[in-house]
Amino acid sequence: MPIRDDLRPYEPYGAPQLDVPVQLNVNENPYGPSKATADDIAESLRIAATDLNRYPDREAWALRTALASYLGHGLGPDAVWLANGSNEVMQQILQAFGGPGRTAASFTPTYSMYPEYARNTHTRWITGRRADDFTFDVDAALALIAAEQPDVVLLASPNNPTGESLSLESVRAVCDAAPGIVVLDEAYAEFRRPGTPTALSVLEDYPRLIVTRTMSKAFAFAGGRLGYLAADPAIVDALRIVRLPYHVSTVTQTVALAALRHADEMLARVAELRATRDETAQWLREQGFQVVDSDANFVLFGTFADRHAVWQAVLDHGVLIRETGPDGWLRVSVGTPEEMGAFRDALTAVVATARQAQDGGSATERTPNEEEQA
């Protein structure tokens, strides 16, 4: 096929979608909407269905107004933009502010889609490194920004796949140094520990700062596909230039508005998921694993000499986790208590089998403590 030469080496992005009893690999909220919320969504869609012969509101003004109210911080609807998931939001940012002859930068390990947004928009992509413990190295970041002068800097807070949040001091330092746009990807913001700040609080100080969010995670709205951002209205106007016509359907706008009417209920499980996350991290440490402190709804743990073998062995027990991030590490999303119990049972069995095999002299995988000693 006459595909672009630069795309030939690549495979489509995507986490495995497998029919297994426990799916803990893509950071979904395991709790769906209540009957009251589902009934509101269904009734709203019934009404909207009578007008589906017409194009949607291409400015999505009602939904942008509702999202501005949800975010607070004095934002108005002209400072909010939305798209088909935060993926499309990010792509629009690079369409408007990246492109041929321009550079985007981030600091690995981080979200694996960032370089794909750059590739798809013909934006030069460069990466710096986080510290060995995966924390954000401000001095190294500032050095890279000074040397490369990137047009767009992408930072995730909490970071995916490691889970750490950035301090406001780090955000300010990057914004002060960056010559172009700074994007703070806060897809997991609602899961942060109490008192952890959001970059929304410094938005009005930096007219080139963009804070992105999603309804996929805390709002349990992954199937609804709604991502959004907050930024100076001039940035929103720039994104309106590159958006596709009518890019957010009437159905998506209707369902998102209904979900926002039930925001308190939709977010009620967040504290429970935070507690489960911390309990999971503690349990993993007690088993001898290394664990990264997380402000998101997932936990990164390791290390393994052959992480794929462990991933497959856990999958063989009916539990799907994620093989992503730095070599030797695995990531598990936070699920229901029953799902997390299945995960613990599966991992315990895998480790026990590996230990027995090692005792027999035929191990293909080290247990956590043995790996650290190696």
Rank of each mutant, 00 (worst) to 15 (best):
E190T: 04
E190M: 06
F191Q: 03
F191I: 04
R192V: 11
R192K: 14
R192F: 05
R192L: 03
R193F: 10
P194R: 14
P194I: 15
G195P: 04
G195K: 14
T196D: 11
T196Y: 06
P197C: 09
A199Y: 03
A199Q: 05
L200N: 06
L200S: 08
L200A: 05
S201D: 15
L203W: 04
L203N: 10
E204H: 12
E204L: 05
D205H: 10
D205K: 08
P207N: 11
P207S: 13
P207Q: 13
R208C: 02
L209S: 01
I210H: 00
V211K: 04
V211Y: 03
T212Q: 11
R213V: 00
T214S: 14
T214R: 02
M215I: 05
M215W: 05
M215D: 07
S216P: 02
K217I: 05
K217V: 02
K217N: 12
A218F: 00
A218Y: 00
A220E: 01
A220R: 00
A220H: 01
A220W: 00
F221G: 00
A222T: 12
A222P: 01
A222G: 08
G223Y: 13
G223L: 09
G224R: 01
R225Y: 15
R225T: 10
R225A: 12
L226F: 15
L226G: 03
L226E: 09
L226D: 07
Y228V: 02
Y228L: 03
L229A: 05
L229P: 00
A230K: 01
A231G: 00
A231H: 02
A231S: 07
D232A: 07
D232C: 05
D232E: 12
D232W: 08
I235K: 01
D237N: 10
A238S: 12
L239N: 01
R240V: 01
R243Q: 15
L244K: 15
P245A: 09
P245E: 15
Y246K: 10
H247K: 07
H247L: 06
H247Y: 12
H247C: 08
V248W: 04
V248E: 07
S249Q: 14
T250N: 13
T250H: 13
T250W: 12
V251R: 14
V251T: 15
T252N: 14
T252P: 01
T252M: 13
Q253P: 05
Q253L: 05
Q253T: 04
L257A: 09
L257G: 11
A258D: 11
A258N: 08
L260C: 10
R261N: 13
R261F: 02
H262Y: 12
A263G: 03
A263W: 04
A263M: 10
A263Q: 14
D264T: 12
E265N: 07
M266S: 11
M266A: 13
L267V: 03
L267K: 01
A268Q: 14
R269P: 03
R269I: 06
R269Q: 13
